[in-house]
């Protein structure tokens, strides 16, 4: 039961047309599956397509090709009641605690909105449920009459989590839920997400650019670069034995809050920057910054191979 996948992303691509000639391939032939009850982490730098995949999974975007199946149903083919059911069971927690709450609605209205849409409760019962959700995320029930601008960033993020929880979801896409928060608050929110996961048996897709936090919260981690998944492994395995040169570089660029360690000569410092996704390099997308680039990297786009069981990597070094 534990290994049963709840969501399968199969060869999904998404192309945005910017103008008649320019096209942006945000996600290219991405495949992975998420098991029920686990936390699946996605990391990558800005523009790598990690947020696009989150929105594809929520059905906010339609894929250019490929399918996303939730409980064996193609989510982009859902209609009517089934679609509403999907919209109830799959929820999102957003990055920006300021933009993700409607400034003109009270906390009560924000949290209750989903219950109203899905007709889960009304009247007094609805209010009681909102209070309960607020307390569950560490707020107080008398906060319900307040407006979002009265709360701090971390508190707003809690409201956003309460809104998602209100409709009793099974699957939550958390799109950089902590990157806009202060360090001391990040840990609060992460601990809250983990507590809720245990209480409600939730499955998470946790999207972030901070590998240390993703590694900590996730069971398995996928590393993305320029719209592609370059490595996928259990999080401890990824940390212990990173295969892809990009993963290695990401791991070593994390500043360590320990002066003794920081002073040691270190790390794979990458040269250059992420290429423009409108005009990606031929072959392997990472070859322009890769310290191990070979001739073949410019010619052939590497395919994913399973290096050791459950550890996938897309790199010519391992073929």
């Amino acid at each position: 039961m534990a290994n049963q996948s709840i969501l399968t992303v199969n060869q999904v691509s998404k192309v945005f047309s910017l103008s008649r000639k320019k096209q942006l391939q945000a996600v290219k032939e991405l495949s992975f599956s998420i098991r029920k009850g686990e936390t699946f982490g996605l990391v990558g730098e800005s523009g790598c397509g990690k947020s696009t995949i989150g929105r594809l999974i929520l059905g906010l975007y339609t894929p250019t090709s490929g399918t996303i199946r939730y409980r064996d149903q193609d989510i982009h083919q859902l209609k009517g009641k089934k679609q509403q059911h999907f919209r109830q069971k799959v929820q999102m927690v957003f990055q920006d605690p300021y933009a993700s709450l409607n400034p003109r609605m009270t906390v009560m209205d924000i949290v209750a909105e989903g219950m109203e849409i899905h007709q889960l409760a009304s009247g007094k019962q609805k209010r009681e449920m909102v209070y309960q959700r607020l307390e569950q995320v560490g707020l107080q029930s008398d906060h319900a009459s307040r407006f979002p601008h009265e709360f701090s960033g971390g508190q707003r993020q809690r409201i956003g989590i309460a809104r998602a929880l209100a409709v009793e979801p099974e699957f939550i896409v958390a799109d950089e839920p902590i990157s806009a928060l202060d360090v001391s608050i990040q840990a609060q929110v992460v601990n809250l997400l983990r507590k809720l996961q245990q209480e409600q048996d939730l499955t998470y897709l946790f999207i972030a650019h901070d590998l240390s936090m993703v590694k900590y919260i996730s069971d398995r981690v996928g590393v993305m670069y320029l719209g592609r998944l370059v490595e996928l492994a259990a999080s401890d395995e990824l940390y212990r034995r990173p295969l892809h040169p990009y993963t290695q570089a990401l791991l070593s660029s994390i500043p360590v809050p320990d002066p003794r360690q920081a002073r040691q000569p270190k790390r794979v410092l990458l040269s250059g920057e992420v290429p423009n996704p409108i005009d990606p390099p031929s072959g392997c997308p990472f070859r322009t910054r890769c310290p191990h680039a070979m001739k073949i990297c410019a010619e052939v786009d590497p395919t994913e191979i399973e290096d050791t069981p459950n550890h996938w990597v897309a790199c010519h070094l391992y073929t």
Partner: peptide, 24 residues
């Protein structure tokens, strides 16, 4: 993001327009 949140909750166009866009 708050409009995206309403959409992912399954809110109708009418609801989004009247409750989220118009007041703002």
């Amino acid at each position: 993001e708050f409009v995206l949140a309403a959409r992912s909750l399954g809110a109708s166009h009418r609801r989004i327009f009247i409750r989220h866009l118009l007041p703002n």
